[in-house]
Design a binder for these strands. Sequence first.
RNA 1: GUGAGCGUAGUUCAGUUGGUUAGAGCGUCAGUUUGUGGUUCUGAAUGUCGUGGGUUCGAGUCCCAUCGUUCACCCCA
Length: 454
Amino acid sequence: MAQKPGIPKGTRDFSPVEMAKRNYIFDTIRDVYHLYGFQQIETPAMENLSTLMGKYGEEGDKLLFKIQNSGDYFKKLSDEELLSRDAAKLASKFCEKGLRYDLTVPFARFVVQHRDEITFPFKRYQIQPVWRADRPQKGRYREFFQCDADVVGSDSLLNEVELMQIVDEVFKRFGIRVSIKINNRKILTGIAEMIGHADKIVDITVAIDKLDKIGLENVNKELAEKGIPQEAIDQLQPVILLSGTNAEKLETLKTTLASTEVGLKGIEETQFILEALESMGLHNEIELDLTLARGLNYYTGGIFEVKALDVQIGSITGGGRYDNLTGVFGLSGVSGVGISFGADRIFDVLNQLDLYPKEAVHGTQLMFINFGDKEAACCLKMSAAMRKAGVRAELYPDSAKMKKQMTYANKKTIPFVALVGESEMAEGKMTLKNMESGEQELVSVDKAIASILG
RNA sequence: GUGAGCGUAGUUCAGUUGGUUAGAGCGUCAGUUUGUGGUUCUGAAUGUCGUGGGUUCGAGUCCCAUCGUUCACCCCA
């Protein structure tokens, strides 16, 4: 066997059927975004590395795909640099660009760069692939699509409410049962302050985040390993184990975090969002979950995450508020909040649950069998008329054996086949065969259109 | 970045304690059928057993390396 070609790990080809399904996902999300007044933008696949670096934490920097400069860059390096064997340092010498890691940071760059053309508040959505140099595994790819919607230039919590409504609506349309989790960075900060370790907030949240995965005991162990004293860990217990309804949780937190201003602010925000959503009535459950941390360190307010209830696959949507993301690009005072649907994981979920509507696949509806040049010419005219009426029609290009042509129609799951031979031509009609039932009858073009579209 | 499993036809896999010419289902192609597919029957094609080295009289099978892949951890959509 000749050497088989392949594609880089963590990347995928998409077949026609897969594309039809993916487009159904993108279209559904896009429709809902439009309903809420979001406008689409796109940004380049590559950004300047300086735009990307330092925005996703240390771990994120490592996962950035860097793009090698062109040209003889090694000539410009000193012997010392070349011999340093320091990948990160050397990369900075001959990589100026990188593939985007998410859509939020490029969007922040976009906002700052085009600030004079943008009318705030700016509601944009963006559906594009992103790349991460991660090691692939189940539900994790190195190239995957995100479907982001963000509002920048407005501090109003109504934006959070609206985004949660969008999340709820999208998953309702997909028919995926989900649990929407909400938290607030300010509450997490308040907790860290309360126990007197505000500086350890990242370690604390990362540890707490693993609660349902590794259990309380291991969380506490990890906290201790990160240098949190035992008494502080003890103080954390009631918070970690917080339970009850959302309202009850908030009440408990109000007393626990009474001493921290940030904490109370976070509680107030969360309460507003939850109450607003409650009055709207969501289809899916929304739950205050303090263990929800999210690694992205630019979040400052509300944090959201969505998990599918019927498939185990990690989070399928996430988002949150970031008060000062544009600040790092030189424009402060612009707050933003956004969500991101993970199209690829949603694809996997829909596949596993087999939730695609039949109409999602827009295949050919009618195929003309090709009997020869004369017959084909007649089919050409008929098919033109049928397309005009909105029938997706095609003519088999070669006058191959019937069996071959029928097999082709069968494989493409084309529901109708038209046979136009000598006798049909004489009458200006076609024999229309229903591929599912096997029935066929001699009909006019108009009648055929009616029964196909009917 | 860390750890574990798996690489045999287009595909899913079988292949005994190492033993002659490496098999099966599905798929593909041809015929049965000069205007009828999805269901029948008949026949055919296809592999450097991921790659390189080693042990052995003998390696698909054992050892080492390498690449690919899958899963878990870290992190994340």
